[in-house]
């Protein structure tokens, strides 16, 4: 019997000791130009330009110095972006971008060339229906919230993408109001929405082509002071701007046996990698009457 137990335990030990780890050749990959660019009416173009480094390389120098970065408006060169030495990887233009135009970005550096195209979307057609203050029970506590109802007049037969931000302004300090993510919120946003930086980013997948009244709750710590008001910034996004903003909070998961879904870098750059896209915003202030 003792021999049997010994044999059984030995087998168990064998099983636990059988974990093996071997090195695998890295996938082959060539360095590329990496562009993160955004154009917005009445602003100058700003792009981040760096280079990707294959996993097999030990270098950590991502910088691309003295690249030729030219912005074209409807096929005509309108701006040459210069390297901004105060911020790594940043190239900045001087030409304010126009509404309803198509912009092309051409980048060349040594033997590498890359190109991206952005089309300024129409500004979103939105109106504020109501704004009120309420107490909301979240998973953690009871909080003072701003309940906002906005009407989005979504254009028919197109996929449209939106980003929305609420700021408290007019007082001694400007601050952003955080979106409360619970099932209280609007299904259209809950379904597709994601928080990126100051913005809620969502698509029209639920209300495509309709006049849609959206209800959202934002956290409002404390009371509004006299003179303070809320400012709604609602942007129409190009698809790749939307994809980029969705990608950002969930980038680069690595796989293991229990790993979840990984995110892939949105890419609309020809012969390179990254995103060059546009947005167009409307700003709506809201003053509480009392």
């Amino acid at each position: 019997m003792i021999k049997k137990i010994f044999f059984i335990l030995l087998t168990l030990i064998l099983l636990t000791a059988c974990y093996r780890k071997i090195k695998i050749p890295l996938p082959h990959y060539e360095s590329e130009l990496f562009i993160v660019g955004l154009v917005e009416p009445d602003s100058v173009a700003q792009i981040s330009l760096s280079r990707t480094i294959p996993l097999s390389e030990r270098s950590t120098d991502y910088t691309v110095n003295d690249a030729r970065v030219i912005l074209y408006e409807d096929e005509s060169a309108v701006d040459t972006l210069k390297q901004n030495l105060s911020t790594p990887y940043l190239y900045t233009g001087t030409y304010p971008v126009n509404d309803h135009s198509e912009y092309k970005l051409r980048v060349s550096h040594n033997h590498l060339n890359a190109e991206g195209v952005a089309r300024i979307p129409s500004a979103p057609d939105v109106e504020i229906k109501s704004v009120s203050q309420e107490e909301v029970i979240t998973e953690e506590n009871i909080t003072n919230a701003v309940k906002i109802k906005i009407i989005i007049h979504d254009p028919p037969q197109t996929e449209n993408y939106y980003a929305m931000r609420v700021m408290k302004k007019g007082g001694p300090e400007e601050s952003q109001l955080y979106w409360i993510y619970t099932s209280l919120n609007d299904p259209a946003v809950m379904n597709e929405g994601i928080r990126f930086s100051d913005y809620i980013v969502f698509s029209d997948i639920i209300f495509d082509g309709k006049d849609y009244t959206m209800t959202l709750y934002f956290d409002l710590p404390g009371e509004l002071l006299p003179g303070e008001y809320l400012e709604f910034k609602i942007c129409a996004l190009e698809r790749h701007a939307y994809l980029w903003m969705r990608y950002q909070p969930n980038s680069s998961g690595l796989e293991g046996p229990f790993a979840g879904e990984t995110s892939q870098i949105p890419d609309n750059i020809k012969d390179g990698l990254g995103v060059f896209a546009a947005k167009n915003a409307v700003i709506l202030p809201y003053h509480f009457s009392n």
Binding site: Y29, F34, V36, S48, T52, I53, Y62, S251, S252, T262
Partner: peptide, 28 residues
């Protein structure tokens, strides 16, 4: 397949503070 660093021009910061520098893996 690789790694990259970039200035995230999509993420607005306070005026004059520039942009966040992000390190990322390239998952194409």
């Amino acid at each position: 397949v690789g790694t990259v660093e970039y200035a995230n021009v999509y993420e607005e910061t306070e005026p004059g503070n520039g942009f966040f520098i992000v390190f990322d893996h390239i998952v194409k």
